[in-house]
């Protein structure tokens, strides 16, 4: 009679950081991220950083006389919490009209409600960490950018790239399987 052995748990590996930190091996996954450029390629365990996601390529918006409606990022390019619990977002704003704002907002569902997570009011080249596991910029579900309506001439030129990462404030790692 054949002995059938079912493995109920994957093999655990002791982290090199210390005997008390037992980390479940993170399965390799393909970086099939949305965005331009060549994707693919497996990522070894412990390295949750994959190829960066081009959330918004360099884009310039301009108008004269204002804009009566918000300009919102198309849904197909929204970042999703299904891919990673934490994103390190590089936000480059080479031009932003005075008094105007570029917002990153989040919602648990595509339908909303959308809540502002972080706002930029001036030219910048910065990295913000957005995490669903806590921290100062907490998001839930989906992330998108938004340019609010205005009654005056305005312009904005910016790029946003994101790299999935880990929330280094804790030792708990949440593997994401794609």
């Amino acid at each position: 009679m054949a002995n059938i052995v079912k493995e109920l748990l994957p093999t655990v590996t002791i982290s090199s950081k210390g005997p008390d930190q037992i980390v479940k091996p993170i399965p390799t996954f393909q970086s099939g991220w949305q965005g331009m450029g060549s994707g693919g390629g497996s990522v070894p365990a412990y390295h949750t950083v994959s190829r960066s996601i081009r959330v918004q390529p360099w884009m310039t918006f301009e108008t004269s006389g204002g804009c009566s409606e918000d300009i919102v990022q198309p849904a197909r390019a929204w970042l999703s919490g299904e891919q990673a619990a934490t994103y390190h977002c590089k936000v480059e704003i080479s031009y932003l009209s005075s008094g105007w704002t570029l917002e990153l907002e989040s919602s648990p569902t595509p339908e909303g409600p959308w809540v502002e997570v972080v706002a930029f009011t001036a030219q910048t080249d910065t990295v913000v960490v957005l995490s669903s596991e806590g921290g100062s910029n907490k998001f839930s579900g989906y992330i998108r950018w938004r340019l609010p309506a205005t009654t005056s001439d305005w312009g904005a030129c910016f790029q946003i790239k994101a790299t999935p990462g880990i929330n280094v404030s804790g030792i708990t790692m949440t593997p994401k399987i794609v």
Binding site: M36, G37, P57
Partner: peptide, 18 residues
Amino acid sequence: ITIRGQTGWAGIMQEVED
């Protein structure tokens, strides 16, 4: 593509992936 920079923004380079 149209790109703009305010005073002080040194420039923009094509992304490595492209």
